[in-house]
């Protein structure tokens, strides 16, 4: 990063995002409780609160899982991605409140400890209708809390983005556990088909968007794919001028995407993987002479791959040359921070 860590680096966008998030959660809980008291007068306040917190958290998890693929499919969803970590921490908090209340209500006043009771009070593992669904929720909660606890940029820097990302991919395991928690728990005592339909719509939406986004990624990789010799030797990328000004052309080489940015008549090749969360830097644009990642606005100087001071992120750069009005790329990375790779349309000729 290159500057002292704060709890949150607030800016107007984050404040708006969090305010909207807070209002949405309060509104959801209020409406759920209000409607619940009217429609289910026999339900206790604790049960309604338990369900309000659980469904709010589960709904938030669906939104979280949809934001990523939606942003991959259509850039207009990117603003939702910008502060997704706060949504994740909010979701984990709702889950913790739901789990804590359930632990207290169902296991808090027995002869054995609440945690022991959680895992031993229902031994009917072979029964579908009476399956011990609560441990499934507890396991999911452990994953979600681990993710929330490691959501700060300190962890991103000190675990490194690939490890951090792998850790946070556990969200899909948590989602699977929660689907089973709901299906084997609340749905077993539900007489109305509406919750089952809602769960099905949720699973299909999350799964469908993930498939569509993966298909688009494969399509992009297919379009930019180059010959097997792409890890060594110069690659003919395209004619100069074919790249839209301020944007990048992607090339798949040396095991990852390389982004060739055009800024006026200057071309620079950067590793297309943002050092922050490994975002898709190659889908960003040049703003004020800097390549900006579309996910969280991390900036890199196209010539050397370094972030402007005081930040210390750096991505590899690659040599470029222009031969007979065509752009050629050497996929062997230059030493970090090296400025010799970029070229201009009116400059270097091989």
């Amino acid at each position: 990063m290159g500057h002292s860590y704060q709890a949150v680096q607030w800016n107007p966008n984050k404040k708006r995002y969090d305010a909207l998030l807070l209002v949405s959660v309060v509104l959801y809980l209020g409406v759920f409780l209000g409607v619940g008291f009217v429609w289910f007068p026999e339900a206790t306040a604790e049960t309604l609160l338990l369900r309000a917190l659980g469904t709010a958290g589960f709904l938030a998890l669906h939104v979280i899982l949809c934001i990523g693929p939606l942003a991959r499919l259509d850039r207009r969803w990117l603003p939702l991605l910008y502060n997704r970590r706060h949504l994740g921490v909010t979701m984990a908090t709702l889950g913790l409140l739901h789990g804590g209340l359930a632990l207290l209500q169902f296991h808090g006043f027995g002869d054995v400890s609440a945690f022991e009771s959680l895992f031993t009070s229902n031994p009917r593992w072979g029964s579908l209708a009476q399956f011990p669904f609560q441990p499934l929720g507890a396991a999911a909660l452990v994953i979600l809390v681990l993710m929330a606890a490691t959501s700060h940029d300190f962890w991103l820097a000190n675990l490194t983005a690939p490890v951090w990302k792998a850790l946070h991919m556990l969200v899909y395991v948590a989602y699977g556990l929660l689907v089973m928690h709901v299906a084997l728990g609340a749905l077993q005592v539900e007489s109305s088909p509406i919750p089952l339909v809602l769960l099905g719509v949720g699973i299909l939406t999350v799964g469908g968007l993930q498939v569509l986004a993966a298909r688009k990624d494969r399509q992009v990789d297919g379009e930019i794919g180059v010959s097997p010799g792409s890890d060594t030797g110069w690659i003919d990328v395209c004619a100069i001028g074919e790249i839209e000004d301020g944007r990048a052309r992607l090339v798949l080489a040396s095991g990852e995407r390389i982004a060739i940015f055009r800024d006026g008549d200057r071309y620079s090749a950067l590793s297309a993987v943002c050092q922050h969360q490994n975002g898709p830097l190659g889908e960003g644009r040049i703003v004020d002479g800097l390549a900006v990642c579309p996910w969280h606005g991390f900036q890199y100087r196209p010539k050397c791959g370094r972030s402007p001071e005081p930040f210390q992120e750096v991505v590899p750069t690659f040599p470029l040359k222009i031969v007979e009005e065509r752009l050629w790329l050497d996929p062997t990375p230059l030493p970090l921070g090296d400025e010799s790779g970029s070229t201009s349309g009116g400059g270097i000729r091989a």
């Binding site: 990063m1 290159g2 500057h3 002292s4 860590y5 704060q6 709890a7 949150v8 809390v145 681990l146 929330a148 606890a149 490691t150 700060h152 300190f154 962890w155 820097a157």
Partner: peptide
């Protein structure tokens, strides 16, 4: 970057430090 980190930052990384 953590040397001059704020108290809020230190509170936020406490749970992660406990787990890892």
């Amino acid at each position: 970057d953590a040397r001059q980190g704020t108290w809020g930052f230190r509170v936020l990384i406490f749970p992660g430090a406990t787990l890892l």
